[in-house]
Design a protein around this nucleic acid. Sequence first.
DNA 1: CGGCATCCGGGAAGATACTG
DNA 2: CAGTATCTTCCCGGATGCCG
Lengths: 229, 229
Amino acid sequence: MKLEKATNGADTATKRRFYDACGTAHALELIGERWALLVIRELMFGPKRFSELRAGLPGISANVLTQRLEGLEAAHIIRRRKLPPPASVQAYELTDWGYEAEPIIQVLGRWATRSPGHDPMQPLSAASLMMSFRTMFDAVRGKWINATIGFRLNGEEFVARIANGKIAIKREDAAGADVIFAGQPTAIAAVVYGGAPLETLDVKGDRALAARFTGLFPLPPKIELGQQV
Amino acid sequence: MKLEKATNGADTATKRRFYDACGTAHALELIGERWALLVIRELMFGPKRFSELRAGLPGISANVLTQRLEGLEAAHIIRRRKLPPPASVQAYELTDWGYEAEPIIQVLGRWATRSPGHDPMQPLSAASLMMSFRTMFDAVRGKWINATIGFRLNGEEFVARIANGKIAIKREDAAGADVIFAGQPTAIAAVVYGGAPLETLDVKGDRALAARFTGLFPLPPKIELGQQV
DNA sequence: CGGCATCCGGGAAGATACTG
DNA sequence: CAGTATCTTCCCGGATGCCG
């Protein structure tokens, strides 16, 4: 006898709640479970399939991903779209409101890079890298750049357009960009955030532009330890 | 590689990690555990003691609060300050970096108020209410107001200063403010966010100002349900 | 292969009782 | 008041297996 399936996170009514009118507390009820926000991050550049999500979330297990997808769908943050047969494959995409969660991801990321425990040299998904560019882009340094930068990252392609001190990034064919980076997201992060030499990367096109691009994303300083105010 | 031993939550090194260079993922390692961010919220207006924290976090149990405080201290987000004997009482306060987490709380709160599941009529701590004012203040509506608003909320006192389209809120003696609200935070929230009549509140001083004040914090519209793009 | 259900072990959260 | 100790419950993670 199936006893209501224990309402594994999908049911907001019986879920563990905070009983707090604070909006922040409610946000944590919606996306505070483990992995939930990272699932949203992976969907920030467009729909993905189950296995694509798993690939971008190192260590998540299939059943937990299923639970998070159920919960996020019940909360109207994502929606599942069934592609037409014969390729009757399901894909998951953010709702409009789900896309509005982008500042949450950015603010958290910007704050956490000041942590002494943050290590930018670990594995990184393509979506993470692209999101980090949106987050850390320095408008002052990028003010005079007008260019398109392409990325080919294990099959996924992105294009960043820099103009008027802003950066816009979309999932899109990289061919035709002024410069194209190819390879693992981690290797590119090592250059942009870890100071590794540009020569370690596979770069096609305007190499001087590539060099300037990698300097557009300064990390904030680490916190001072041992301050005993 | 398996994780050895329990290391009850306080040890960031052996804690459950995401193994992801993404700053957002690291932020979740730091403050993603249940209650952690709400503890930070409670400390946003200054140091508090253990029992004061419990009072503002309905439903947290003492051992969990202890674990969160240990973890947040190990992560350099909070610090414990021992007051001098004979009142050798401990208090917890945010570090400078901990205070920098305020945008996280605000962005989450603003986003979640659009959720159909958000109910502003639930219990609310004083810190939550004050933080919600900082978060939802409408600069346009408040542009022409220049005033100080006092609050007496179960013993805690706050003052909000509105000037030049900005609002600043501090824990401070409410006496001398142009208008003073007294009572339960929930009752004030019912007026500001729930449309309850001002007459349900204990208001001293400039009553017209009080009425204008309660209209300065519009909630964003709820999301459209059933959109089937 | 993609998605989901089920079982299991370990660990985190919740509730209560207890101590300095 | 400020936690600790203990017990229970639930969630997370891994493995397996079913079904289209």
